[in-house]
Design a binder for these strands. Structure first.
Length: 563
DNA sequence: CACGGCTGCCAC
DNA sequence: AAACGTGGCAGCCGTG
């Protein structure tokens, strides 16, 4: 059963219940403030299956429900699904793809005009019409070979929508954060918190070492230009102030400088100011942006949620009586490549707990390190170093897998679109790119222009090569979380997600569940089961040729203990 | 002085 | 070891 939520004015809502052909059975008009109770009743109605709530945008509708202690089992996020369907190669032949841009193509953030007229974007949209268009478009989806492809696309839209629920619920729950422990970490590494505008004691001392080793009194180490000048004046052969370059230089100023940079980075990115800004009431509440990355990965907005440095992970601590179940999908992208290419030799390696060891065991390479760099090179398009050297070995051992990524790279070099396993498609290259390609192939093009165009083409090829793997890995992760979320929900009494085990953090191929300690082992099993099930959901029933999606699970009090 | 480009480093 | 994908973010620095 689909229930479509429509904002009729800023404080009036209509809910349309639809039958199987999307015609309206009943309509209920409500004050917006009565929506949480209405949704709660529908979700908990005995005997009736919970509806799938269709709304313009989970990020707009769901947080107020969560704040009122109401959760929903399923939804359809029209804005996120719209974006997928507009760009997908599977629906490129439909009127949905060829129509001009509409309000549904706008980003979610309110425009100045919306605020001026006190209108939320959803008020000006017609979710019911949009739903019908999307359903028709999915039904018309066709694969490359002309066969119907609505199954995969439906799964993608469901997974994307489930992801939007997970994102809102995780922001609502927050990451359990021990501010006292965070302060302890900072104080141990940097010295006590200084008054603003000053450096903490240990950082200042480190800087004094740098200055004295360089024989300068006042260089500002935070200005790359000034620092580089000082380094060169002291006779160091530096061409930049990047740590990896400085590491190669043998000079007494280098070790303290590298330490200074590390300390300084910690203070500016995740220091006391970050703590003041982002942690409140023992929770870090990042804002996740589902679909925020072209490949389908999530982005984040504020707080740097997707780059939590290992240095501060000790501050992520379960509540008393609770524990963290941290699960990491092992070698996710190589496994994804094996599964989507149908490469049987690579799939065999992918049945091992450690896929890179599996590649060694099956004789493709000699060492785990070679396997790792070889795979990264294959997926990123590396040409240099160990990656480049391993490429012929990879191609020989795993011809089908390498052919798949090479094919994607060639398509990108020609400016064509590539798609993930479930049908999310890459953007087309920008106008500058196309212009450069056109000019380089025309008469009178200089060698420099041609070289630059070729370099740009190869660059876009590396993007599309990586897109199909990274994007499909993101789809697997969405399915993993969607399944996990529903299983955890069954263990949680009442409406509030934080009353029982719940997802607290997500990072591309890793999830964290905050759970009452006595349920930790049960949760760990569920996490593993959902990983396998996500593999079957995407790639079909398990057989001897299928990849096993292994996860390493740690039951810990502090995030620093995981991995 | 607001803004955007650049540098450098963090995560996967 | 160094350069090969996706991002966020702080601070610097030039520009209008």
């Amino acid at each position: 059963m689909l229930s479509v939520v429509v904002a009729t004015t800023t404080d009036q809502v209509s809910v349309h219940d639809l039958d199987d052909d999307d015609s309206v059975l009943t309509t209920t008009d409500l004050d917006a403030g009565d929506l949480p109770d209405f949704v709660r009743e529908r979700e908990q109605a005995p005997g009736a299956p919970a509806p799938r709530w269709v709304w313009s945008d989970t990020a707009t509708w769901y947080p107020p429900l969560l704040a009122a202690g109401v959760t929903v089992a399923r939804c359809w996020d029209l804005r996120l699904c719209h974006a997928i369907l507009r760009a997908s190669a599977l629906t490129a032949h439909t009127s949905f793809a060829s129509a001009g841009a509409s309000a549904w193509d706008q980003p979610r953030v309110q425009t100045a005009t919306d605020r001026l007229f006190d209108l939320d974007p959803p008020v000006r949209l017609d979710p019911l019409e949009e739903l019908r268009r999307q359903r028709r478009t999915v039904a018309a989806a066709l694969a490359d070979d002309g066969r119907p492809a609505s199954g995969r696309l439906s799964l993608l839209l469901a997974a994307e929508s489930a992801g939007s629920l997970v994102a809102a619920e995780m922001t609502h729950a927050g990451v359990p954060w021990d501010a006292i422990e965070h302060d302890r970490i900072l104080t141990a590494l940097l010295g006590r918190r200084p008054v603003s505008g000053y450096r903490p004691e240990l950082l200042e001392a480190k800087l004094a070492q740098v200055r004295s080793a360089l024989g300068v009194g006042d260089v500002n180490p935070d200005s790359p230009a000034e620092l580089l000048k000082a380094l060169r004046l002291a006779g160091l052969p530096a061409t930049s102030t990047r740590s990896w370059e400085l590491r190669e230089i043998d000079h007494p100023a280098i070790p303290p400088l590298l330490e200074y940079k590390k300390m300084s980075r910690l203070m500016t990115a995740n220091g006391w100011h970050w703590l003041d800004t982002w942690v409140a009431g023992g929770r870090f509440r990042p804002v996740y942006v589902p679909g925020g990355v072209v490949t389908g990965r999530w982005a984040s907005d504020g707080g740097g949620a997707l780059q939590l440095p290992h240095q501060v992970r000790g501050a992520v601590r379960a509540d008393p009586g609770w524990t963290l179940v941290v699960a990491d999908a092992a070698q996710l992208e190589p496994r994804i490549l094996a599964a989507m290419s149908g490469d049987r030799a690579m799939a065999r390696a992918g049945q091992a707990t450690d896929m890179y060891e599996g590649m060694v065991a099956t004789g493709a390479v000699e060492t785990r390190q070679q396997a790792k760099y070889g795979m990264l090179g294959a997926m990123y398009g590396g040409t240099q170093g160990e990656s480049g050297r391993m490429l012929p070995r990879m191609t020989k051992a795993y011809p089908q897998a390498l052919a798949l990524v090479e094919h994607a790279a060639r398509a990108g070099e020609r400016g064509e679109v590539v798609s993930t396993w479930l049908g999310r498609s890459s953007p087309r290259p920008g106008q500058d790119w196309r212009l450069a390609q056109g000019e380089a192939s025309g008469e009178g093009a200089t060698g420099v222009e041609q070289d630059r165009a070729r370099a740009q083409a190869r660059g876009w090829g590396r993007f599309t090569r990586n897109f199909i793997v990274q994007g499909t890995a993101a789809e697997w992760a969405l399915c993993w979380m969607a399944l996990l979320r529903l299983r955890l929900r069954d263990l949680t009494p009442g409406g509030d997600v934080t009353a029982g085990p719940h997802l607290a953090f997500f990072l591309h191929d890793e999830v964290m569940v905050h759970t009452p300690a006595h349920l930790a082992e049960e949760v760990a099993d569920i996490v593993r089961e959902c990983a396998s099930e996500a593999g079957r959901l995407l790639f079909g029933a398990a057989d001897e040729a299928s990849v096993e999606f292994q996860v390493s699970v740690a039951v810990v009090v502090s995030y620093a203990e995981a991995k």
